[in-house]
């Protein structure tokens, strides 16, 4: 069972690096924000997988907090793109 989890984790990590291509090449800033949003979702799931693989229960808290921070980051960058300021 652990091998299946390990294989999925490696697969997800590779996909995350492929997403990084869009953040590098995207023609507009909105493309880059989309890519970073996708990466932050994937990394949250990756951290949850790591808590299974290493047996550290507290990593799942890190995944929860990472999902929250990713959401706030996306909203902040989008607002900055739209208005030129954050408030």
């Amino acid at each position: 069972m652990d091998t299946v989890f390990l294989a999925t984790t490696i697969f997800l990590a590779v996909l995350t690096f492929i997403c990084l291509y869009r953040a590098y090449a995207g023609p507009t800033a909105a493309d880059r924000v989309v890519a970073i949003d996708v990466i932050s979702t994937k990394v949250a799931v990756l951290i949850a997988f790591l808590s299974i693989l290493t047996g550290q229960e507290s990593f799942i808290d890190v995944a929860l907090v990472y999902a929250m921070i990713g959401f706030v980051m996306t909203i902040a960058v989008s607002k900055y793109l739209e208005k030129g300021k954050l408030y």
Partner: peptide, 11 residues
């Protein structure tokens, strides 16, 4: 979905 909506709106 909320994040996607806000990116689309800003664009």
């Amino acid at each position: 979905p909320t994040a996607a909506h806000i990116i689309a709106k800003s664009k």
